[in-house]
Design a binder for these strands. Structure first.
Lengths: 182, 182
DNA sequence: AGCCACTTCCTACGGCTCTTAGGTTAGCGC
DNA sequence: GCGCTAACCTAAGAGCCGTAGGAAGTGGCT
């Protein structure tokens, strides 16, 4: 019985790879164990089970997204910052569909990263002169638009053959105008 | 063996009720059969299986959403029409979380209703002077914002204790300004 | 009325999922 | 070299979807 030498980190990374390649639904403990060259019950030495795996995946995703987003708006303001954050957000989501999907049911595991992103967005919104409740409304607006677009795109929800990148850029420009005139 | 007298319609309606009450994930053939007072395999007389049930649910959801949305913007234009459509959309989604979720993986089953909704939105956008590709970009923007907000709301994705209705109204107003200045 | 055919509904089963319980063995520290 | 930890295993159970094949209620036809 040659030991594989798994660690929690290796297991979660392998899970992320499966989720991104085959979809989050294809991430089963059986598939994960097979990918690691191990029998399914052996995973319970490293994980608390499927729910625990999903939480760890969500935490990993939140951390990664936070890391790519953090430097995106450095030195930019208003429209430029919004556009940059938007494009980085969309690109990361497109490159990591499984991880992005794992982010979905809001869980405590991703709370810290969520607050990091929120702070980042609020900083940009201050450039628009938005504070207090206004800033919260605006942050939710931006988040809803980004999340909605990326989600619909991932699910093939946009049927019409008009370039999605153009539409995304158009949306960010419209958001910029909407925020600027608040 | 008293017969229950099921029909495809009754089965799908019962499924919709379970999905809305307990969540789409809780909609299993076993749960559906139990709710109908029948054993699981009996459902196969009315359905092709779980995938088929999900498609039928998506078709039902698309039809319902189209029906409530169609008269929403009658006699209104621009900002008022957008606000009305938005509120009806959100209200329906909040009242039917299971059906709304069933709409998710874009399937051929909901195509007709999707086109109906698209035509409705495009009509409103004409009020903003948007045509051709511009109108497509704008329609995608509106859809992304609505879908994103409603989805995040359903998942408890908005943590901060600021009124969600206010945020939604703010988003619709921001969209209106963004579209008006396109 | 009586019978036939249809369709609903059933039991039984196989394969997949996650999960727990308990035993074996590899490899590190003493 | 020996023992302890933990990584890994087999075995088993509950729940899921889906298929196969049989029994029974219901409507139509003679």
């Amino acid at each position: 019985m040659a030991r594989v030498g798994l660690t929690k980190e290796l297991v979660v990374l392998a899970a992320a790879e499966i989720a991104d390649r085959d979809g989050l639904d294809a991430l089963t403990l059986a598939a994960l164990a097979a990918a690691l060259g191990v029998k399914t019950p052996s995973l319970y030495a490293h994980l608390g089970g499927l729910d625990d795996l999903r939480l760890r995946l969500a935490a990993l995703a939140a951390a990664q997204l936070g890391d790519v987003l953090a430097p995106a708006a450095a030195g930019l303001s208003r429209g430029e910052a919004l556009r940059e954050i938007g494009h980085v957000y969309r690109q990361w989501a497109n490159e990591h569909p499984g991880l992005y999907a794992a982010l979905q049911p809001a869980s405590p595991a991703r709370e810290p990263a969520a607050e990091q992103v929120l702070a980042l967005v609020l900083a940009v919104l201050r450039g628009y002169g938005l504070e207090g409740d206004q800033a919260i409304h605006a942050a939710r607006t931006v988040r809803a638009a980004l999340h909605g677009f990326v989600t619909l795109e991932a699910q093939g929800g946009f049927g019409i053959p008009v370039d999605l990148g153009d539409s995304f850029a158009w949306m960010l420009a419209a958001l910029d105008r909407g925020l600027a005139s608040a």
